[in-house]
Computed example of a mutant assay.
Amino acid sequence: MELTLKGLHHVSAITAKAPENFKFYTEVLGLRLIKKTVNQDDISVYHLFYGDEKGNPGTELTFFEIPMAGHNQDGNNSISALSLRVPSDEALAYWDQRLTEHKVEHGTITELGGRQTLSFRDHEGQRFILVSDENDKGVAGGTPWAKSPVPAEYGIVGLGPAHLTVETAEDTAVVLEGLLGFRRKGTYPSTAAGQPDVIVFETGEGGSGTEVHLEERNNLPQEHLGRGGVHHVAFRVDNEEELKQWIERVRTVRLPNSGFVDRFYFRSLYFREPNGILFELATDGPGFATDEHIEHLGESLALPPFLESKRQQIEAHLKPLDTRP
């Protein structure tokens, strides 16, 4: 059986302040907090998950809280921008006005790679691109949360292309194409003068929810990851059996990797491509309603069973974060 990734699963970034992060992503961007838990590799800090009404794979934007993190130093060998899909060009006009009203730093509506887009930065400098689905064909987006402050017809419906900036594009391309099975879809001009064209890769059904945009830059320092930076990007695997096959494939090419990791809400594999960017392969299930009722996702601290015995210790070290409606 041919292994095929289904598209983007989630992206994980760094925040220094969970309360401000929660306020921005729910009140300004209108996303739903679908899970309030802890970083399983450092249980002293929060891990917040945002997404559509159910936290469907392909809609998940997550943040590790690292209170002492310095500002991200943008540069090479990084996930240099994240994209968020909106339903239409008209939605971009709505967001242009909304971001202005909320005093969010943003650009102007611009065509990028054949789509209408609008760039912005959050309160910690995190780089985003809103991408119109007006003419998009391919993997479907999610369903905006009914209780969002953003009208459903303009709401964010999922993750769009992940933008990677690297020193040597072909080193990353070998992994995307040769190992992970992405297809080259085309190119478009870099926004940086004198630099090579950005290469567009897609997988699965195609469309913006499956794309990686790869840019080679020879004039940037190495990124220093901090708040406002992206930790990793995860791609969708249909089920656990397929994940195990992916693990064998990655081992065969001798890339250092995590092996099978049980995150409870999904199962994962982690590895770094040659330019040092962290990739994750994650299963679509079991999902975020596994331990909470769908109507009350994110309202209380959720812990996977293997951390439940440490709840008292964990709660004693976390600063209270009220996420109730």
Rank of each mutant, 00 (worst) to 15 (best):
74 D>L: 10
79 I>W: 13
80 S>Y: 03
80 S>Q: 10
81 A>L: 14
82 L>I: 11
83 S>V: 06
83 S>G: 14
86 V>T: 08
86 V>K: 09
86 V>F: 03
90 E>M: 12
91 A>G: 07
92 L>N: 05
93 A>I: 06
94 Y>M: 06
94 Y>R: 06
97 Q>R: 11
98 R>P: 06
99 L>D: 02
103 K>W: 02
107 G>I: 13
108 T>H: 10
108 T>F: 11
109 I>M: 06
110 T>Q: 08
113 G>A: 08
114 G>M: 09
115 R>W: 03
115 R>M: 10
116 Q>I: 07
117 T>A: 05
119 S>E: 12
119 S>K: 14
123 H>F: 12
126 Q>G: 14
127 R>Y: 12
128 F>Y: 11
130 L>F: 13
131 V>I: 15
132 S>T: 11
132 S>D: 08
135 N>R: 12
137 K>L: 14
137 K>I: 10
140 A>W: 01
141 G>E: 04
141 G>N: 05
142 G>F: 00
142 G>R: 00
144 P>C: 06
145 W>T: 10
147 K>E: 13
148 S>F: 00
151 P>A: 13
152 A>I: 06
154 Y>F: 15
154 Y>N: 14
155 G>E: 07
156 I>V: 10
162 A>F: 14
163 H>C: 12
164 L>G: 01
164 L>C: 03
164 L>N: 01
165 T>W: 00
168 T>K: 13
168 T>Q: 12
170 E>Y: 04
171 D>Q: 15
171 D>L: 14
174 V>Q: 09
176 L>F: 05
179 L>W: 02
180 L>V: 04
181 G>M: 10
182 F>P: 05
184 R>M: 12
186 G>W: 01
187 T>E: 10
187 T>W: 00
191 T>A: 08
193 A>H: 12
194 G>Y: 00
194 G>A: 04
196 P>R: 12
200 V>Y: 00
207 G>T: 02
209 G>C: 14
210 T>W: 02
